[in-house]
Amino acid sequence: MRRRLFLAAAAVSAACSRLPKRVLVPVPPEAVGEWRRSAMETHDPAGAPPDAARLKPEQWVRAAYVNGQRSIGVSAFGFSSDASAFELQQRWNRGGGDVTYQRKSIFVVCNSPTEPTAALIEFIRMLEKSWP
């Protein structure tokens, strides 16, 4: 009986130690091609857009990139699991011309008041190579 208890405790302990560690959103790169990062800030995840807030992200980071008068906004949401990030990738409303991608537990969305979708796609391809 005592041996079983010991084995059960060891199994629980091993399982807990293998729980996925919370991954932080890395700092957005300073430059993406010719685009330079001009601002970076974090926000309370509780105030995230409804699609994201429903999945309870742990982090919400925003950055702005500029190239002359042109600008692109980047938001990244960090989740405690890959599944949540994937879920948001599926559900995100892209009606506003947003371009998104997901890698592991992080979901990234880009939009711009000045750039057409093609330019955003080009930007996000470059961004995806180095971040997150």
Binding site: P26, V27, E30, M40, E41, T42, H43, D44
Partner: peptide
Amino acid sequence: PEQVRNYNLLLPPVDRRIL
């Protein structure tokens, strides 16, 4: 508060190795 938080999170361009 978000303003104070972001003020104390400001990062200059730093070497990628530090990150």
